[in-house]
Amino acid sequence: MGVLIFLVLFIAASIPLSWSFRAGLARVLPRHMKSAARDMPLTAAFGIMVIAVYILVAIFAPLLAPFPERAVVGTQFQPWDSTHLLGTDRLGRDMLSRLIYGARNTVGIAFATTALAFLVGSLLGILAALRGGWLDQGLSRFVDALMAIPSLIFALLLLTIFGTSVLTLILVIAAVDATRVYRIARSVGEGIVVMDYIEAARLRGEGNWYLIRREILPNALAPLVAEFGLRFCFVFLTISSLSFLGLGIQPPTADWGSMVRDNATLITFGNVTPLLPAGAIALLTVAVNFVVDWQLYRASGLKEQVG
């Protein structure tokens, strides 16, 4: 019952917060962005607000956290009190501090992975669309083959082979995810390369790199940015799940997935502390999804015109 009450309270508190955040944003932003800020739905305002808070927490983690990330500062599983606001974990480390540092580690690693996947996937995808021929065929069939295997299963297979460390984790997830980005980038690119202005630039004698950088990327950016949000959520959830399974980010690094795993026994005693890192993961994905939904809605514009 407590969880439900908390949920209702949380929603009740977030509505006026996001409303005032939106109002504030509309006031502060330069004129051409003002109308977008004013017209955005509350869910999107909420999403942007949450993302902003996460970024701030990640940047200022050492200032905000009352205790160091890895230091043992108390006994095991201390309950919530005034020094350890959220109690301590299995080894006696401060939960709140680890939660704050987790924003930096978990989100940072997920972001780096997504960025890497996008760099590789979108460049290859657009190049395949631009060049066509054997390059396109070869890459696309290769990606098809990799995509026939569920991504989590493929990631687990690769992690067995290369072992589990943060670097292999980033590379493996980025490689798996780049196949999905490649697909999107290629199909977006296909629509653009048949345009007259690409033909004109080609006739001017511009090279592939110029075409990608100056002609295709600016036009492909809007769908790719929305996709970036979705892929980030996916990567973030995958990395959290792997860390939760003990195969991702390794201790003593503070990370939300492994924090849930380490302290999960508390839940069966009716203590909600291990749910907090999981909730932090969920809240960020919800927030990103809200913003992406709004962006997609803005991009299509006619989604709900029916009836």
């Binding site: 969880v3 959520c233 959830l237 799940s241 939760f244 997935g257 009716g270 990103v288 939904d293």
Partner: peptide, 18 residues
């Protein structure tokens, strides 16, 4: 949308808790 955004283990532990 929220359920999609939740990691599976979060849902699982909420159910365990409840």
């Amino acid at each position: 949308l929220s359920a999609i955004s939740f990691p599976e283990f979060f849902i699982a532990y909420i159910l365990i808790y409840l």
